[in-house]
Design a protein around this nucleic acid. Structure first.
Lengths: 161, 161
DNA sequence: GTACTTTTACTCGGATACCGTCTGTCCGAGTAATTATGG
DNA sequence: CCATAATTACTCGGACAGACGGTATCCGAGTAAAAGTAC
């Protein structure tokens, strides 16, 4: 129903978790997926997309796992969205007008494309504003503060190296 | 992949067609779907949604069909989008943060909802700007003008009453 | 010619099927730290 | 003790199954204009 996949939300929280790691430490997929109550094997594929987008780094082998590639100030919600959902537009013309008017292929002729692109741009602009650093700050505020500290301890416990 | 359905685009063009009708005249579903190269029986269900949204009116019986309910200046692209896609948000939290922090149900606790709502608002705002009247004007401009006049004649031919 | 019936051409709405995408699962392969083994 | 081999715990990536939503198809029902029929 034109809905954002849950993978985006999961990825955001995964990155917020990785942001709690001390330098050089990593968190294995298994631990994260357990906290997010999702399937480890599928969640790995999401992490893979984040790796491909150069948002996180993967370390193979025993004591392996994932960690952030960049500073949290340099990761915005849109980056994560794009990594998971790809760069396809929300709208792309099916060429109906072209068929209706029997135009040649080379004449691009959608009355909506320009408008929709603009709308999508406005939408993405808002997602580019919010960074992981800002979200992490919000987690430290009330009423999440206590629980977030608890979460920090959980991360310390599950992390390796 | 988080993509707008083609039904929205088809509906926009259908309404542009209905906008070409003289007063009191209607256009049957069969004719429209034929022009849009889509399945008549399914397209009827789209038209039904537009009727429910009070954008168009249906006339049953022989010489029946569909026509606009409002003036084209009072129909915007967003109205059509909403009629087809419903009013569900692009994003809705799956409550992951709540689970992670083990919060109670009543504490709404999604870090993304506020941001995403704002983004969606910006997106819809652009779609609310463009009216059917404006799109119809664009069709009368070059390089569509000649073909649009041809389309007008086609509508005259297929309309009833 | 008028009243009534039948036909016809539409809309209405439910049931169902197909297909692509998202999610979930399984498996074999790669990698590197740890442990075991042999001298 | 040191070098090498085996084990272990991860990531990597492909293949495949299940669920779900959008699209498409079929059917019977409702509705009203047109056509046919009876008197």
């Amino acid at each position: 129903m034109m809905h954002m996949k849950t993978g985006v939300e999961q990825s955001v929280y995964a990155i917020l978790l990785l942001n709690m790691l001390p330098n050089k430490a990593v968190l294995p997929c298994e631990a994260i997926s357990q906290l997010l109550s999702t399937s480890p094997t599928y969640f790995q594929k999401l992490l893979r997309k984040l790796v491909n987008a150069d948002l996180i780094t993967s370390v193979p082998g025993v004591k392996g796992g994932f960690k952030l590639t960049k500073r949290p100030e340099n990761i915005c919600v849109y980056d994560i969205y794009q990594a998971i959902e790809g760069q396809k537009s929300l709208y792309s013309s099916s060429g109906i007008l072209g068929d209706m008017l029997e135009l040649k292929q080379e004449e691009s002729c959608c009355l909506l494309t320009g408008l929709m692109d603009e709308a999508e741009y406005a939408w993405k602009l808002v997602m580019k504003r919010e960074t992981i650093a800002a979200l992490a700050e919000k987690m430290k505020e009330q009423p999440f503060r206590l629980k977030t500290e608890e979460l920090q301890r959980w991360v310390q416990e599950k992390m390796v190296a």
